[in-house]
Nucleic acid binder design. Structure first.
Length: 128
DNA sequence: CTGATGACGAGCG
DNA sequence: CCGCTCGCCATCA
């Protein structure tokens, strides 16, 4: 297994229970421009990687067939809610890692992501 | 070794 | 919102 795969797996393993992130985010954080590769990585991921918490940027599950239903079922077990269009609410369950955590582990947090994280935290605070 | 192919995403129309 | 194209990387015939 190469370094890129391991970096992606490490990130995926850091996703908290009941939260989700996107292929694009993982790809960006490991310095990828071609996100197709992230899908490949998840396809070959070890059993200890919570692959179901990785979805596409539209907030939907990309997979069809049995594996797709399995992914949705796993997420629903984690209290992740899907709307009538099969989409999740990123403001509710979206996960963006801490900039510090990323830096410590050799990842980079793209500015747009940092902004979105800040925004999300603001919303959560106001809710509380 | 060469070429087709993706659990994706941004940009365009 | 839908349907394209391209990205240039790892994998597998």
């Amino acid at each position: 297994m190469n370094d890129l795969f391991e970096k992606i797996y490490t990130l995926a393993r850091a996703i908290p229970f009941g939260k989700v992130t996107t292929y694009g985010q993982l790809g960006a954080m490991v310095g990828l421009s071609d996100m197709r590769y992230v899908g490949d990585a998840m396809n070959a991921c070890p059993d200890d990687v919570p692959w179901q918490r990785v979805i596409n940027s539209r907030g939907t599950i990309s997979l069809g067939g049995a594996t797709g239903s399995k992914q949705r079922a796993l997420l629903e077990q984690e209290s992740v809610v899907f709307d009538e269009n099969g989409r999740v609410d990123f403001a509710e369950v979206g996960w963006i890692p801490d900039a510090e955590w990323l830096e410590e582990n050799g990842y980079k947090l793209p500015p747009p992501l940092a902004q979105e994280k800040k925004k999300n935290e603001g919303e959560q605070l106001s809710l509380f």
